[in-house]
Simulated assay, not measured.
Amino acid sequence: MRELIKEAIADLKKNEGFIYVTAEGKRIDLHEAATRGIPVTPVNPKDDVIKKLEAAGLYVTDGRFMNDFNELVGLISGNSSGKTSKRRTFSDGEKNKILEEWKKVEATGNKTKAAFAREIGVGYQTFINWLRS
């Protein structure tokens, strides 16, 4: 998989415009094709890369897939909150339970407000606003 991704990056970096393929699907230089009289079809290298990635199960043009993938990467890399690009809304009951839990944690003196907010997946400023209200 890693090699496929590296290959995709290299393909996109080296091809600034279209690539040209013969009827058999082989890449060919446009000048060479014209000199030899070989008909070619222009192909956007991005489309070619997307097809290769999708064949391997990586649907980079599917927003939901990318959200799930980014969440997975975040969780693996230590983002314990599992945040995605979507905002989470908390009910009043959930806020009250979180604030009650904070009172218990605060009494132990083992965590900062910022660490607690990160742990529960709430922005620090949002958590502070809850404490003030």
Rank of each mutant, 00 (worst) to 15 (best):
E94T: 08
N79Y: 11
S133G: 15
T84L: 10
P45H: 01
K103L: 11
S85L: 13
K111Q: 15
I76Q: 08
K26F: 12
R87Q: 14
W102K: 05
T84D: 08
R118Q: 13
T126H: 05
K46T: 06
A10W: 04
L58Y: 15
I120Q: 11
T22G: 03
L4N: 07
G123V: 01
V73Q: 06
I9T: 03
N96D: 10
D92F: 03
E101F: 06
F116D: 10
R27N: 09
R132D: 09
L99Q: 07
N15P: 02
P42R: 03
F90P: 07
D48M: 06
F69S: 09
L72H: 10
G109K: 00
S81I: 03
I38N: 01
H31S: 13
I76Y: 10
K13W: 06
E106N: 09
F69H: 08
K113I: 14
S80M: 13
E24A: 14
F90S: 08
A56M: 07
P39T: 10
K111N: 11
I19Q: 07
S91P: 00
E71Y: 07
V21C: 04
N129T: 10
I28R: 02
A107G: 02
K113P: 05
S91C: 06
A8L: 00
K51F: 02
A107S: 15
N15I: 07
T126K: 08
T35W: 12
D92M: 08
R132G: 03
R132P: 02
T84N: 10
R64G: 09
K111T: 12
R88I: 13
T112H: 10
L131G: 04
I19W: 03
E119F: 08
R2N: 12
G25K: 06
K46C: 02
K111S: 14
G63K: 14
G121R: 11
L53K: 01
V60R: 06
K52Y: 02
K86F: 12
F90N: 03
E3I: 00
E71F: 00
P45Q: 04
L4A: 06
N129F: 11
L75V: 04
P39I: 00
N129K: 15
L72R: 13
A33P: 07
L131N: 08
N79G: 14
Y20W: 11
I120K: 15
I5E: 03
W102A: 08
E106P: 06
L99D: 03
D47C: 00
K46L: 07
G25I: 08
Y59W: 11
E94D: 03
K104L: 13
I38H: 03
E94P: 01
A114W: 11
L99P: 05
K103A: 15
L4D: 04
G74K: 02
N15D: 02
K6A: 10
D68P: 05
I50P: 04
A55L: 06
G74H: 05
I28Q: 00
K103P: 00
M66N: 07
G17A: 04
R88H: 09
K13R: 13
F18W: 01
L72W: 11
S85K: 14
N110V: 09
E106T: 05
N79R: 15
G121I: 08
A34G: 01
